[in-house]
Simulated assay, not measured.
Amino acid sequence: MELSSLTESPSDALFDGGALSGTDERQAVRLWLRLLGCTHRLEQALGQRLRRNFGTSLARFDYLAQLQPYPEGLRMKALSRRLMVTGGNITGLTDQLLAEGFVTREVDVNDRRSHIVRITPQGLATFERMAVAHRQWVDALLAGVTEPDRQMLHRLLGGLAKSLDALPAD
């Protein structure tokens, strides 16, 4: 499948009204809408699968995914930054995962205003089961994109990320 047809569907007209034209003054907005539409569809599909197969949400999966490589834990503020959500969202997720035994939360001995969150052995085992399924689902969702197109898309989006990172803060 060609990369350009990855998102072709009847709902695309709602997002961008058709093909991207090099001379169209709305090109940047149309590209952004295409990226947003693809992201939304992928998140929706993964979220549905996580709910159906594990009774959890994509937000909870992402939370555990951020903690998994850090057995020493992360400060809640760092976790909030990594997940790009508010502190209130992190607190709510932490409370839920704490109640289920998936994480621990302790006051940071170096900064009593901060809390460190760690994934528990139970949380790690649960996350690892979900991660195996998640990888399979992502592979299936992207199966229609050829390997060369995947590599090109990864490279192009990496360039976009660098350019966004270089923008001055408002």
Rank of each mutant, 00 (worst) to 15 (best):
L74R: 09
L50F: 05
L141M: 12
D139Y: 07
T86K: 01
G101M: 01
M84H: 01
P148R: 07
F127P: 06
E72C: 10
S80M: 01
E72K: 14
A161D: 10
D62T: 01
N110F: 13
R75V: 06
H154G: 13
D149F: 07
L46I: 13
T86F: 01
P71S: 11
V145K: 00
R113N: 11
E100N: 05
G47M: 08
L157S: 09
Q122G: 06
Y63I: 05
G73W: 03
L157F: 09
L98W: 01
M130Y: 06
T126A: 14
E128L: 14
G88W: 00
R155Q: 13
L157T: 12
N110S: 13
Q96C: 00
W137Q: 03
L142A: 14
E106P: 05
V85K: 00
D108N: 12
T91V: 05
H154C: 14
G101H: 05
T86M: 04
D139R: 15
L153M: 10
V85Y: 03
R118C: 14
Y63L: 11
A143M: 11
A131S: 14
A45L: 09
K77N: 12
Q66P: 00
M84Q: 07
G55S: 12
V109D: 02
G87S: 15
W137P: 01
D95R: 12
K162C: 13
G73S: 07
A59F: 01
N110A: 14
L97N: 02
S163F: 07
R82W: 02
L42Y: 08
Q136T: 10
L42R: 10
Q136K: 11
A45S: 12
V132S: 13
V117G: 00
E147N: 07
L142W: 09
E43C: 13
V109G: 02
G47T: 07
G144I: 10
V132G: 11
F54A: 02
M152K: 13
E106V: 09
H115P: 01
E147T: 15
A45T: 03
A133C: 12
E128D: 15
V107M: 09
I119D: 03
G123L: 02
R75D: 03
Q68A: 15
D149E: 12
S114I: 05
S114K: 11
R60V: 04
I90P: 05
L142F: 15
H134C: 10
E43A: 07
S80D: 03
L67S: 02
L97M: 09
L156C: 07
T56G: 04
A133F: 11
G55I: 01
L74G: 06
L58C: 05
T120L: 05
L160R: 08
Q44Y: 11
S163D: 13
A143P: 08
A143E: 14
Q136I: 08
G144Q: 12
F127A: 06
P69V: 08
V132P: 02
V117W: 02
Q122S: 12
T104Y: 03
D95S: 11
L93A: 01
L67H: 06
R75S: 05
P71M: 10
